[in-house]
Simulated scan of single mutants.
Amino acid sequence: MDENKPFLTEDGTLVIPFECSDNADKYWKQEGKALTDILKELNASPEIWARYTHEPYPSDGDGES
Rank of each mutant, 00 (worst) to 15 (best):
I38C: 02
M1W: 15
P6T: 06
Y27L: 07
T36V: 10
W49V: 00
L14C: 07
T9C: 10
S45L: 11
S65P: 01
P17C: 14
A34N: 15
E41C: 04
G61I: 11
E10S: 14
W49M: 06
G63E: 13
S45P: 05
E55D: 15
I16Q: 05
S21E: 14
A24M: 09
D11E: 15
I38M: 06
W28F: 10
G32V: 04
S65V: 05
Q30E: 12
L42P: 02
N4Y: 04
E31F: 01
K29S: 05
I16G: 02
I48V: 15
E10H: 11
P46V: 05
D37P: 03
W49C: 00
F18Y: 09
K33C: 09
T53Q: 12
D62Q: 10
M1F: 13
W28D: 02
G12W: 08
I16A: 02
K33T: 09
L39G: 01
T36F: 02
E3Y: 11
P58D: 01
N4D: 12
P46M: 07
P58R: 05
W49N: 04
D25Y: 03
Y52V: 08
E10Y: 12
L39R: 00
A34C: 15
L8T: 06
A34T: 15
L14D: 02
P58H: 04
V15H: 08
I38Y: 03
N43F: 01
D11H: 09
I38T: 10
G63N: 10
W28L: 06
N23A: 11
K5E: 06
P58Y: 00
L8D: 00
P17K: 12
P6M: 08
Y57D: 06
E41D: 09
L14G: 04
L42D: 01
Q30C: 06
D2W: 13
G63I: 10
D11G: 09
K33A: 07
D2R: 15
